[in-house]
Amino acid sequence: MTPVPSEPGARMVEMGRDEALELLGSVQLGRVTFTDQALPSIRPVKHLVDAGDVIVRTHGGSALLGRALRSEVVAYEADEIDSATRTGWSVVVTGTATHITDPAALARYQRLLMPWIDPEMGQVVRIQPEIVSGYRLVAATRP
């Protein structure tokens, strides 16, 4: 039996900061990455993008909040990829996490961003992007 050639895959196209942040803001779920006991740790969280910053909610005892209280660097990633067409996009933001304590800002973000697992997730963390990288996976052209 002769193997059937597979469809060409996708190719990666780098996108600019503004486009990457716009796409990041178009989805609600991503993954935050930080160091925990000298090892990488990843947590799924809901987010929103506000004025170029990534905003997430968490609970008072979370490892992420501990990083934000110390203004540590974290990474945040979200994507939307279609496994059938092998197309989509992925964005990674790297920046400093800080705990939002201003009462007006806290109330605003608690209103705009509903937690996905626990309504008692009253803490809010801002990730201020220093590095933003994004790639689109686009259908490869046939030769």
Rank of each mutant, 00 (worst) to 15 (best):
E72W: 06
P3G: 08
T141V: 14
T35R: 00
E77F: 00
M1A: 14
I55E: 04
Y109E: 01
Q128C: 12
P8Q: 13
L106N: 06
G61Q: 11
V92Q: 07
V49G: 06
L69Y: 01
R70V: 09
E19G: 02
Y109M: 01
V73G: 01
V138C: 05
V93S: 04
V13W: 00
G16A: 08
M1G: 15
S62M: 04
W116K: 00
E120L: 12
S62P: 08
T33S: 15
H99L: 04
D82T: 06
V45Q: 07
L137A: 09
V138G: 03
L64F: 07
G30T: 08
Q110M: 09
L39T: 06
P119Y: 07
A140C: 04
R70T: 10
G61H: 12
L29D: 05
G9I: 07
M15R: 03
W89H: 05
D53Y: 01
L112Y: 03
E22I: 00
V27D: 02
D18F: 00
D53L: 05
E19D: 10
A63S: 10
S41E: 06
G60I: 10
R31K: 13
R111C: 05
F34D: 01
V49N: 11
V27C: 04
I117S: 12
G9H: 10
S41T: 01
V54K: 01
V49H: 10
Q37R: 07
D79K: 00
A63I: 05
A139E: 14
E130F: 04
L69S: 12
T87K: 05
L21R: 04
R70A: 15
G16T: 00
G61R: 14
G60S: 10
A75P: 03
A139Q: 14
V13Q: 14
H99M: 03
G134R: 07
G25R: 06
H47P: 06
H59T: 02
A107I: 01
V91E: 02
S26D: 09
G30A: 06
A38S: 04
R43Q: 11
R86H: 15
L21H: 07
L29V: 10
T2Q: 11
D50V: 08
Q28W: 02
G60V: 11
R126M: 02
Y135P: 00
P143D: 15
M12V: 05
G16F: 05
D53A: 13
A51G: 04
G134S: 08
T141Q: 15
W89D: 03
R86N: 13
T33R: 05
M12L: 15
R142N: 12
V4F: 11
V4N: 13
L24A: 14
Q128K: 14
L106W: 03
R67F: 08
M121Y: 02
F34I: 04
